[in-house]
């Protein structure tokens, strides 16, 4: 009973040590595919290599995350893209982007060519733009950052463990204990 109490207390007073796992998220952003590699507690994985494969397992490209765990990639082929981040010691994160999600804005060819891009937004040639267009581009950039933050928050929300889930797990264990009792009691009765 005291052990149980200790475990419950330990769990209750330690919200800062809730478990987390490696999360790889990819999404289409205009003409490129952007993604983030991090942990469900909000920490980002910096300078990690991510390999991009097609569904046949052929490597299409390798990209690296920046210090914020962010990466950008320009696909060369309209095929399903499988992003794999191997952080070593069995820590593997995988995310798939289906070919149907790749937009017509992308310069997709039939040849299996892929380009790695820098982890920053594509720059527009400022000299050819009016001030209105520049403002619009800046607004779009801000919007893009806000959407990225929302995606990150949404992902973290999905991954968080709430008490209901943990208590649900306990409930399953309790149910299995009951089932175990039933079978053990039946076995004992048969033995008599």
């Amino acid at each position: 009973m005291r052990t149980a109490l200790l475990m419950v207390l330990l769990t209750a007073i330690s919200p800062w040590v809730w478990g987390h796992k490696v999360i790889l998220d990819v999404f289409v952003s205009g003409a490129v595919v952007e993604g983030e590699l991090g942990f469900s507690n909000g920490e980002m994985a910096n300078q990690q290599m991510i390999s991009v494969y097609n569904t046949m397992g052929q490597e299409l490209a390798q990209v690296h995350t920046d210090k914020n765990g962010f990466f950008s990639y320009t696909p060369g082929q309209k095929v399903d893209q499988v992003f794999v981040a191997d952080l070593g010691a069995g820590h593997l994160a995988k995310a798939t982007l289906s070919a149907s999600e790749l937009t017509s804005n992308m310069q997709l060819s039939s040849a299996p060519v892929a380009q790695q891009t820098e982890a920053e937004s594509p720059r527009l040639p400022a000299t050819q733009l009016t001030s209105e267009q520049v403002n619009m581009a800046l607004e779009l950039q801000k919007l893009s950052v806000e959407i990225r933050q929302m995606r990150r928050a949404l992902k973290a929300y999905k991954e968080q463990h709430d008490w209901q889930t943990i208590l649900g797990g306990m409930g399953y264990i309790l149910g299995l204990v009951g089932l175990g009792y039933y079978f053990a009691a039946r076995r004992r009765l048969q033995d008599k």
Binding site: A4, T11, V17, W18, I166, I173
Partner: peptide, 11 residues
């Protein structure tokens, strides 16, 4: 089983 289930969640 419950102890293990909870303990492994505390990182």
């Amino acid at each position: 089983a419950a102890t293990f289930f909870v303990a492994s969640l505390i990182h």
